[in-house]
């Protein structure tokens, strides 16, 4: 018999904490935007900057629109699959259609410095925080 030397309470507590973190996330906590939707996104933090990564395989970069307005970002576009004329389809697992998603960042965004890259079917947005929104330390004179 295989014995697993892990503490079940530890696992449960980790899960519980992860759930609580998701529920109280600043990104989707009290805003209007919802979880789910296409494209699914992951948000990462790196040296105080944020990055949004989304999988959009098979979408032409010309068909992806990104709009930034104050602290709102909209990713929209169209995914098309072309089988060519007269093709008979044996298996169809890839989806086609329109996607549209808007979310708000929990900080003020420097709209001019938002950068987008699209490589190997992955869309990466880097979201720099606006200069006036960054924390500042004040010296006591």
């Amino acid at each position: 018999m295989v014995r697993l030397f892990t503490n079940p309470i530890d696992n449960l507590l980790t899960l519980q904490k992860a759930l609580a973190d998701t529920m109280t996330s600043d990104w989707f906590g009290s805003g209007l935007s919802s979880r789910g939707g296409v494209p699914p996104i992951n948000i990462f933090q790196q040296d105080g900057e944020y990055a949004i990564i989304a999988e959009l395989p098979g979408v032409d970069r010309k068909d992806i629109d990104i709009d930034v307005q104050r602290n709102r970002i909209r990713i929209s576009g169209q995914k098309q699959v072309d089988y060519g004329e007269g093709a008979s389809v044996h298996r169809r697992e890839r989806q086609t259609g329109a996607f549209d998603r808007t979310f708000a960042t929990p900080f003020a965004l420097d709209a001019d410095k938002v950068k987008a890259e699209y490589n190997d079917g992955i869309l990466a947005l880097s979201l720099p925080r606006a200069e006036q929104d960054k924390p500042r330390s004040i010296n006591i004179s």
Binding site: L56, V81, A87, V89, R91, R94
Partner: peptide, 23 residues
């Protein structure tokens, strides 16, 4: 990977979605 398979007169084509995988 989500895959489409379709057939034309002289070939069978498979398209597989593998986002984030480099050539």
């Amino acid at each position: 990977p989500g895959t489409d398979i379709f057939e034309t007169g002289d070939a069978i084509t498979m398209a597989m979605e593998m986002p984030g995988v480099n050539r």
